[in-house]
Amino acid sequence: MGKRITSKFKPQNKWVREMVEGDPHVASTLDVTSDMLKLQAPSQSLCSVCKGGKMLCGKTTCPIMARLGAFSSMFQSIKGTEIDGSSPPSVFVGRFGYPYVHIGPLSPTFYGNTEILDAPEQWFGKSIDEIIGYRSQLIRGMTPVNVRKPWKAGKLLDQTRELSLAEHYVETEMKLTKKPTKRFYMNGDIQPIGPTAPLENVDIGYIKWNRHMEKYHYDTDLKAAPATIKLFENDVPLSNIMRAFSMGNFGIEKNRRLVPTRWSITAVDDLLGKHLTKKIKDYPLINHYEVYESNYIGNRFEILLMPDAWCYEAYEAWYPRTLWNPDEE
């Protein structure tokens, strides 16, 4: 992992100030001379080279600037160390320091139907700014846990696990040990997320579990893989499955473990991908070529189906005049 560089929004950081002042939305919500927002970025990050102006990532607008605008706006709604709102529901399990990781709930500072804030299935058709806005409204409370001895986290673990099985948004009250720091990571690989702070206590209101997840949560003799497949076949949203999977809610009781959120996404995708591949192999052979196309937020997808035995190939190409494809074509 590249060495981290840290700086603050001070007048002498000219390129940072110029980036902020060049964006009307960010400039209107962030005073670079007084807010003292800390920046962190890997030294090899494209962002530290691009500085929001060269668009080396190939996008038409800088996603970092969009995140920064949403992030700075979010801080205006934080008044202290008590965060009251409706969790979508949302939880997070970190991966750094594994098996000693940080877990905790995520919640905005307002009540109501907040499900869209952490429901990627509902985001298709939304703009990058809208998606970043959803994620940036979620404040993350975190507590350290040993994934091999999670019970030592006590109530904080139990409440977070309850949230991970919820079917709808849940009223949540978080007590943080301190107000979140204004630390912003300038890295295009990090998904948008709001401020983070250590968690002292959490209380949740009325909660209703998804009935399918509840069934397989209590089935301690069923392995996690078939439980995941059954949930998918019962039309449980994929993001809900991944969230519950990360909190170790499924599988043989003695084998259940907390799984970092990023790893749970990969694991669930892999399980379901292999399951669907087996089904596809039994489909009848097509007798003609088929082409499908889709374009969305700077990504273009071309899918070609050919009448032949099952095989799969994927190619990735970067747009012209980007870091990995500097040519005109």
Score class of each variant (00 low, 15 high):
229 I>T: 04
154 G>M: 02
223 K>R: 12
189 D>T: 14
237 P>F: 05
211 R>K: 13
231 L>C: 05
158 D>R: 10
214 E>W: 07
158 D>E: 15
179 K>L: 10
238 L>H: 08
178 K>L: 14
192 P>L: 09
268 V>M: 03
189 D>F: 10
217 H>Y: 15
205 G>P: 09
147 V>C: 12
267 A>Q: 02
211 R>T: 11
169 Y>G: 00
265 I>F: 04
196 T>D: 08
240 N>Q: 13
264 S>C: 04
165 L>Q: 00
261 T>Y: 05
148 R>K: 13
169 Y>D: 06
182 K>P: 02
172 T>H: 08
267 A>P: 03
236 V>C: 00
186 M>C: 15
259 V>E: 02
245 F>G: 03
247 M>N: 02
225 A>R: 03
193 I>R: 09
194 G>T: 12
154 G>Y: 02
162 E>V: 06
239 S>V: 00
256 R>K: 13
196 T>K: 13
198 P>C: 14
252 I>Y: 11
212 H>K: 05
162 E>M: 13
161 R>C: 07
263 W>M: 03
165 L>E: 00
205 G>M: 10
165 L>W: 03
187 N>V: 11
191 Q>M: 13
203 D>Q: 13
172 T>N: 02
208 K>N: 12
220 T>V: 15
187 N>A: 11
257 R>C: 05
161 R>N: 06
267 A>S: 06
191 Q>Y: 12
247 M>C: 06
155 K>C: 04
156 L>T: 00
249 N>G: 00
256 R>P: 05
172 T>D: 04
215 K>S: 10
260 P>F: 00
217 H>K: 08
247 M>R: 01
198 P>Y: 11
149 K>P: 01
195 P>Y: 14
153 A>L: 11
166 A>D: 12
224 A>C: 02
168 H>Y: 15
210 N>H: 15
191 Q>T: 13
206 Y>Q: 11
237 P>A: 06
153 A>G: 02
152 K>V: 10
233 E>Y: 02
238 L>D: 01
225 A>V: 09
168 H>W: 08
241 I>L: 01
151 W>H: 13
219 D>Q: 15
152 K>M: 12
222 L>G: 00
240 N>K: 06
194 G>D: 10
189 D>C: 10
253 E>H: 12
176 L>Q: 08
247 M>P: 01
164 S>A: 13
230 K>T: 05
254 K>P: 01
219 D>G: 04
162 E>H: 07
182 K>F: 07
174 M>S: 04
211 R>P: 11
186 M>D: 08
238 L>N: 04
174 M>C: 12
191 Q>E: 14
211 R>Q: 11
167 E>K: 14
256 R>N: 05
183 R>N: 10
220 T>N: 07
169 Y>S: 14
163 L>A: 03
221 D>N: 11
202 V>Y: 01
149 K>F: 14
